[in-house]
C-alpha cells in the first residue's frame, strides 16, 4: 500500500485521541492511558499496513490483528469505526447494557478478530493463526499488540519461544512500551529490561522505534514483513496517556474515565 500523507495521519492521531477520551468519558469507565499510548501504532496498522476490507470483514486471506491487551479496546474501536467497520455512533454506547462495544475487545464487533481481556493470551492465538496460514500457503500476516505490563504473564514467554522456535516470520508483535502498569512504573512492579534482548534470545527479530513517530512505526512494519525466518517484535517506546499532560505516565489514568472538566481540558490539549 502507498504511504498515506504524514500530515493527514498526524491529524488523524489527534482525532483518534479526541475520540478515545470522549468514548471513555461517555462510558464513565475504561482505560484511556494505554489506549492513548498506542494511537500511532493503530494508525500505522489500520491506515497503512493491514490488508483488510471493512465491507468484507471475514475475507479469508485478510491480515489478522489481535489486541492482546484487550482493555485498550477504545483505541481499536475508534480505528475500526474510522475505517467503517461499524457506525461511529456506536462509540457513544461503549460499555452500555446491550451495546455492540463490550468493555474489552470483543469478537462480536465487526473487525475484531479475538475477544481478549485476560492478559497474556493474544500472542499464542496469533501464532496459531500464523501456523494455519503456513499450512494454507496464505500470504496473510498476523499482528498482535502486547502491553508492557502484560508481558509479566508467563504465557507470553511460552508463545515467544514457540514463535521463535517455529520461525513464524508471518507474525509481528508490537510492544506498547508505555512504561506504566496499573500499580505503577513497570520498573517498580517487575522490571522488564532488557526486553528487546529477551525477545532476541527467543529467536526474534527486534526493531526498536519511537512509538509516537508514525513514519518509524510504518518503516518497522515494512521491516517486519521483509524479515524472513524470524518473527518480529517492534519494541515501541511510548508514553502512557500520550497527548493529555495530566494523564501522561500517571498510573491513575490506567483505568478510569475523565470528569467533564477533565475531558474538556484533555480535548483542548489534544487540539
Amino acid at each position: 500500500m502507498n504511504r498515506p500523507d504524514i500530515n493527514t495521519l498526524t491529524a488523524l492521531a489527534r482525532q483518534f485521541r479526541r475520540d478515545i477520551v470522549t468514548t471513555v468519558f461517555g462510558a464513565g469507565s475504561g482505560h484511556p492511558g494505554g489506549s492513548l499510548s498506542m494511537v500511532e501504532i493503530v494508525i500505522a496498522l489500520y491506515c497503512y499496513k493491514l490488508r483488510i476490507d471493512p465491507k468484507d470483514p471475514s475475507w479469508p486471506d485478510r491480515d489478522i490483528f489481535i489486541l492482546s491487551k484487550g482493555h485498550c479496546s477504545p483505541a481499536l474501536y475508534v480505528a475500526l469505526a474510522h475505517r467503517g467497520f461499524f457506525p461511529k455512533e456506536e462509540l457513544s454506547r461503549f460499555r452500555k447494557l446491550g451495546a455492540l462495544l463490550q468493555g474489552h475487545a470483543y469478537r462480536g464487533v465487526p473487525g475484531v478478530e479475538l475477544s481478549t481481556g485476560s492478559l497474556g493470551q493474544g500472542l499464542s492465538v496469533a501464532n496459531g493463526w500464523a501456523l494455519a496460514s503456513r499450512l494454507d500457503k496464505s500470504a496473510r500476516r498476523v499482528y498482535c499488540i502486547l502491553g508492557d505490563g502484560e508481558i509479566d504473564e508467563g504465557q507470553v514467554w511460552e508463545a515467544a519461544m514457540s514463535a521463535g522456535f517455529r520461525k513464524l516470520d508471518n507474525v509481528c508483535a508490537i510492544l506498547d512500551r508505555n512504561r506504566v502498569q496499573q500499580d505503577g512504573l513497570t520498573e517498580k512492579v517487575k522490571d522488564l529490561a532488557p526486553v528487546s534482548d529477551k525477545f532476541r534470545s527467543c529467536g526474534w527479530n527486534v526493531i526498536d522505534v519511537d512509538g509516537h513517530d508514525i513514519s518509524q512505526v510504518m518503516d518497522a512494519l515494512d521491516g517486519a514483513e521483509a524479515a524472513k525466518g524470524k518473527p518480529t517484535l517492534i519494541n515501541a517506546a511510548t508514553v502512557k496517556g500520550k497527548g493529555v499532560s495530566f494523564m501522561e505516565l500517571n498510573p491513575d489514568w490506567h483505568g478510569k474515565a475523565p470528569s467533564r472538566e477533565e475531558l474538556e481540558r484533555a480535548l483542548k490539549e489534544i487540539g
Binding site: Q121, L123, S124, A126, G128, W129, E158, M161, S162
Partner: peptide
C-alpha cells in the same frame, strides 16, 4: 506449555 498450547489451538481454529 499448556497455556500456549490452548491459545495456539484457538488461533488454528479461528483460522478454519
Amino acid at each position: 506449555a499448556e497455556q500456549d498450547l490452548i491459545g495456539t489451538a484457538a488461533g488454528l481454529a479461528l483460522a478454519g
